[in-house]
């Protein structure tokens, strides 16, 4: 997948300006960056729900189509008063070959129960299974590890690795750098307005060290300032 000269904005506010990115086929690419830097906006643009101000997105040389993408959003939509099985049956409408019980071997969720009674992590796992059920060549996973227990994090990581070996291309975001360094072939750090710094697998140790040093030195001063404002005068 190629993102060529991508520009994105909300009204007059420019979020991403002139981003170029190549996601190699059958690879896992991680996307990191502080809140609000444009990660989710970029994923929405790739999917097509956020119009590009300028630029183009190509998949194997042709314009990327939504039917080639399975997109796990940060916040998932579930109809009220439906069971987990019904949710996966809705996803099966897009791919009749999907096997609901086979998929559920991944997390063993109580599919007979209403989704309204699920915890945040269970909902995330259900949505992840829904994305797998679509069986599309490109997977966009926005914060797939948010709110998920440790065991399930490992299962998701294994599933992602398995999907890559099965020929899928995966672009995912996460705020937990370790989860990305474990599974990604490449990590892209989105900085300001879509300025991107790419790190290959061999550079991950350097990336981790760099992130920790930068963030701690910057955050230390800001935390001290914020807490000082709460102190009684």
């Amino acid at each position: 997948m190629n993102l060529i000269d991508i520009h994105l904005s909300y009204g007059k506010e420019v979020v991403i300006s002139g981003l170029n990115l190549h996601v190699p086929p059958q690879s896992v690419m991680g996307l990191v960056g502080v809140n609000g830097v444009g990660k989710t906006t970029l994923l929405n643009a790739i999917f097509g729900t956020k119009p590009l101000t300028q630029g183009k997105i190509e998949w194997e040389g042709s314009p990327l189509q939504p039917r080639q993408i399975a997109f796990l959003e940060t916040e998932q939509f579930f109809y009220p008063k439906i069971t987990g099985r019904e949710y996966l049956e809705i996803c099966r409408l897009a791919n009749k070959k999907a096997d609901v019980d086979g998929l559920n071997a991944l997390f063993d969720l109580p599919l007979h129960k209403l989704v309204d009674t699920y915890s945040t992590g269970m909902k995330k796992k259900l949505a992840f299974m829904g994305v797998l059920a679509l069986d599309r060549p490109l997977l966009l996973l926005d914060e797939p590890f948010n709110g998920v227990d440790l065991e399930s994090v490992e299962r998701i990581k294994l599933a992602i690795n398995h999907l890559r070996l099965g020929g899928k291309t995966i672009l995912l975001t996460s705020h937990i750098l370790e989860t990305l360094t474990d599974i990604c072939d490449k990590i892209v750090v989105l900085v300001h307005r879509g300025r991107a710094e790419s790190y290959e697998k061999a550079q991950f140790a350097e990336l981790t060290q760099h992130m920790q040093q930068t963030l701690r030195s910057k955050a230390g001063a800001q935390v001290a300032k914020a807490l000082a404002s709460l102190a009684p005068s």
């Binding site: 999917f47 729900t49 997109f71 959003e73 939509f77 109809y79 809705i90 996803c91 409408l93 897009a94």
Partner: peptide
């Protein structure tokens, strides 16, 4: 209705 985006995601 709040399921517009969801249905689009599924390609329905």
């Amino acid at each position: 209705r709040r399921d517009h985006q969801f249905l689009v995601l599924l390609g329905l």
